[in-house]
Structure formats: C-alpha cells, structure tokens
C-alpha cells in the first residue's frame, strides 16, 4: 500500500466518522423587510447602490436611503445628493424611502439611529466617508469599525468600486477555521441574499498561524511532528460536518450550488488570495466578543477583501429559525 493510498484511506475514515451523527446545525432563515442603504458621497456609492438594489429586487424588501456625515447641521448639497440617488433607485421600480438626516453628531451614531427606525440589513461602504483608494486595505474607517461592534443587524459592505456588481453574486465565500454558531448564522444570511444560480462555498482553513502558536505553546509536551497540517485539517471535523450537511441540504432545497474546499495557510492570506481572485461576496462571521482572537481575525479578513463583504455579527442571527 503506497503512502498516497494510506493518506486517502485516512481521509476517507475521518470523513465517514464525521458524518456519523454530526452535531445538528440549523441555519436561520432571516426575515428581510427593509434594507438601509448608507451613502457617503465617495466613489463606492454606485457599488453600494447596486448591491442594495439587487438585494431589494430579489427579496422584495424596501430600501431606506440615508446619508450620514459628521456635524450637527444638515448640509443642503448632501441632502440633495441623497434625494437624487433615492429618486433614481425608485425609478427602477423599487420601494424606496428616505428622510431627514438621523440624529447624532457622528456618522456611526446616525446610521445606528436609522437602523433603530427599522431595517434588517445595512448596506454601506468600507471605509465610510473615504474613497476606497485612500485607505485601501489598511483600514475600514472608524465608522465601520464601530458599526461592526454595535450594529444590531448584518452589514453588507462595498469595497473596491471597480468590481463588476452583476458578477459579484455568483458565489458567497464563507471561510472558517473552527465551526461555531456564528457560521450557521452567516450561512443563513448568505442563503437569504443568494440569487438563483449562485452558490455557497465553505472554505475550511487549516490555519498554520494557529499551528505555530499551538506548537510554541505546547513546546516539549508534544512532539513537533505530531502537529502538522494533516492534524490541523482534522480539527473540528465533526463540527464542520454538521455545518456542511446543513448547508448542502439548504442549498439543494433552494437549487443553489454548494461546495466545500480545504486550504492550508494563514487564514487572512488564504482568504484574500482565494476571495479576491474572482468576483464574489465574502461572508464573515464575526463573533460577539470584540476582544477575542476570532474577532480580530474577522477584521483582518474585512481589511484584505476587495470584494463586498457580508459581515454577520453572531449576536444577530435573524428572527426565525427553521
């Protein structure tokens, strides 16, 4: 028996073991009645509009257009810009509403105030109030970073404005190292926004950075050769199996594609390489605790993304579970 056959046997065994009574994972079916579209006058606005319009057209949700900017006083030019954009969206046959600038001195506070009036999804750009080229991959902007922590709803963030909007919906890429309930929430949201003919891709990453930390931490307690990529790929296999089964079944029921890939490398690097290679929507499951390593990893994924990002904070998985 040659080594490749031995490896295939091992993988096959682990796959069957994982499939034997995997934990039951239920994907939420979020309700989407109103989408809040946040414009900022930057070069990303056209992409934000296209994303929001596509979601509204697909789901039948209404659009509520806001323009948040610093300062207490409303600026007529910006208010006019908002009204014009809302009118253009309405001309496309969408149910569009707009209104006076929400209360608050800071843009994030205005956007949170707008969400309090109703809305299950916020479409905005990151960085907010800055052109994408100005900050690029270095920052998401302070407004978005605060929204990530405080938003009561998921965020659909436009990134590189050069990305062709029509092609972005072909695939939703959901990366994960350890499967948790936040990934079920994120998958549920992705399926809610996915158009027919599109698909969900689960990217299981064997994170070598994690391996390095574990090896360093364990030191002499564990032989170095005992912790390798293959070991890493097996971690949480059972939990992954539950999520994979739930996603496959849900996608099959909706006629959507669903595929599972496994990659080895540093999480942010692997996701950036794969995620940015083609137009698609990156789905990031952000854990509740902003101090956690997983939360920081989610931020790193967002910064590296050139494609739009659907960021689903775990504390908000929707209102109805199937």
């Amino acid at each position: 028996m040659d080594p490749s056959e031995a490896r295939e046997l091992e993988e096959s065994m682990r796959a069957f073991e994982a499939a034997l009574a995997p934990p039951e994972v239920v994907l939420p079916e979020p309700v989407l009645r109103r989408v809040v579209l946040a414009l900022d006058g930057s070069n990303q606005d056209p992409l934000s509009e296209e994303l929001a319009a596509a979601v509204a057209a697909r789901t039948g949700a209404s659009l509520h257009v806001v323009y948040a900017y610093p300062g207490e006083a409303a600026e007529p030019a910006r208010e006019r810009y908002r009204e014009e954009r809302a009118a253009q969206l309405a001309a496309r046959g969408l149910a569009v509403s707009t209104g006076p600038r929400p209360a608050g001195a800071e843009p994030f506070a205005q956007l949170l105030a707008a969400l309090e009036e109703g809305g299950e999804l916020l479409v905005a750009c990151a960085p907010y109030l800055e052109d994408f080229g100005a900050l690029g991959h270095q920052s998401l902007g302070s407004a978005v970073e605060v929204l990530l922590q405080r938003s009561p709803v998921p965020l659909l963030l436009a990134r590189d404005p050069e990305r062709p909007p029509a092609e972005l919906w072909r695939e939703f890429l959901l990366p994960l190292v350890f499967a948790g309930p936040e990934h079920a929430s994120a998958a549920g949201w992705a399926l809610r926004l996915a158009p027919p003919q599109s698909g969900l891709r689960l990217l299981l990453v064997a994170d070598t950075e994690l391996l390095g930390s574990a090896t360093h931490l364990l030191g002499d307690f564990v032989a170095q050769q005992a912790l390798d990529d293959e070991v890493l790929k097996q971690l949480e296999r059972k939990e992954h199996a539950g999520l994979i089964a739930a996603c496959q079944k849900a996608c099959a029921a909706r006629g959507l594609g669903c595929r599972v890939s496994v990659r080895t490398g540093e999480l942010a690097q692997v996701v950036a390489e794969l995620g940015n290679a083609e137009p698609r929507v990156l789905v990031v499951a952000a854990p509740a605790d902003p101090r956690s390593t997983a939360y920081q990893q989610a931020l790193a994924l967002l910064r590296e993304a050139a494609n739009p990002v659907l960021c689903v904070p775990h504390r908000h998985s929707g209102t109805a579970a199937s």
Binding site: A19, A21, A241, Q248, A252, C258, R259, V260
Partner: peptide
C-alpha cells in the same frame, strides 16, 4: 437508529461536481 444517524450530506464536497 445508529445507522440512521449517518448524515450522508456531510460527505458531499461539491454538488455541481
């Protein structure tokens, strides 16, 4: 019951392929 707990969908990598 034990056999029924197998979830074959967990083994599917790519429905399109």
């Amino acid at each position: 019951a034990m056999v029924a707990r197998f979830d074959e969908w967990a083994l599917v990598k790519d429905r399109r392929i």
